[in-house]
Amino acid sequence: MSDQGTLPYTEAFILEMFRHSSFLPFTIPHSTTRDTVLNGYYIPKGRCVFINQWQVNHDEAPLHPKLWKNPHVFNPERFLNAKGTEVNKEDGEKVLVFGLGKRRCIGEFIARRQVFLFLTTLLQQLEFSVRDGRKVDMTPRYGLAIKHKRCEHFQVKQRFPMASLS
């Protein structure tokens, strides 16, 4: 974990992965505790509400300024400063993946650390590529969870093959 601060592109990649995938498009249901007006819409007390995380992370609403430039393009650089040496924490906070406010996921801190450790361990030990001449289809399949088509064109090789013990 001590290396995390020296790996800004890895941090930016994780933020972009969270933003782009939005694997759970909606938060768990919540209920209003009082009559509320939000952006001109009246929401009565006791009403079940969902937050559309996918919409926030893809900025599809036509009534407000764009939060993300080219939201359908996977681009980790959007979270880096001009030199690529630091993650813009303010932009990182705009990614909605663990909910927000006092009802935010209590496991967020641990989950972010685990994702970092898992990804960096995979990248350290394995080499990922796509077979020559093949393309990856990133078109999402929408449902309760957002999934992508299974890609048969990925290749994974061990970076440091183990020597035979015989």
Rank of each mutant, 00 (worst) to 15 (best):
residue 49 V to M: 01
residue 136 V to P: 08
residue 72 H to R: 06
residue 47 R to N: 08
residue 33 T to G: 03
residue 138 M to Q: 06
residue 76 P to Y: 12
residue 77 E to C: 08
residue 55 Q to L: 05
residue 105 C to P: 08
residue 133 G to K: 09
residue 105 C to L: 10
residue 56 V to A: 02
residue 123 L to Y: 12
residue 135 K to W: 06
residue 85 T to E: 14
residue 112 R to M: 14
residue 118 F to T: 15
residue 69 K to N: 05
residue 80 L to Q: 11
residue 130 V to M: 12
residue 61 A to N: 12
residue 141 R to C: 00
residue 85 T to M: 09
residue 40 G to V: 03
residue 117 L to P: 10
residue 58 H to R: 03
residue 38 L to N: 02
residue 64 H to F: 09
residue 96 L to G: 00
residue 134 R to M: 14
residue 99 G to I: 02
residue 130 V to H: 08
residue 127 E to T: 14
residue 77 E to T: 08
residue 87 V to Y: 09
residue 88 N to E: 13
residue 97 V to C: 10
residue 78 R to T: 07
residue 72 H to W: 07
residue 98 F to G: 03
residue 59 D to W: 02
residue 50 F to N: 01
residue 72 H to S: 08
residue 130 V to C: 11
residue 134 R to F: 13
residue 98 F to H: 04
residue 85 T to I: 11
residue 69 K to H: 05
residue 141 R to Q: 00
residue 120 T to F: 14
residue 85 T to Y: 10
residue 36 T to C: 08
residue 37 V to A: 01
residue 36 T to Q: 01
residue 51 I to W: 00
residue 102 K to T: 10
residue 50 F to W: 08
residue 135 K to D: 07
residue 119 L to Q: 08
residue 103 R to H: 08
residue 79 F to Q: 09
residue 41 Y to D: 00
residue 91 D to C: 11
residue 132 D to M: 11
residue 50 F to S: 01
residue 113 R to C: 13
residue 102 K to M: 12
residue 122 L to T: 05
residue 62 P to S: 11
residue 100 L to K: 12
residue 68 W to P: 05
residue 38 L to R: 00
residue 103 R to I: 06
residue 33 T to V: 04
residue 80 L to E: 12
residue 126 L to I: 15
residue 47 R to Y: 07
residue 115 V to R: 10
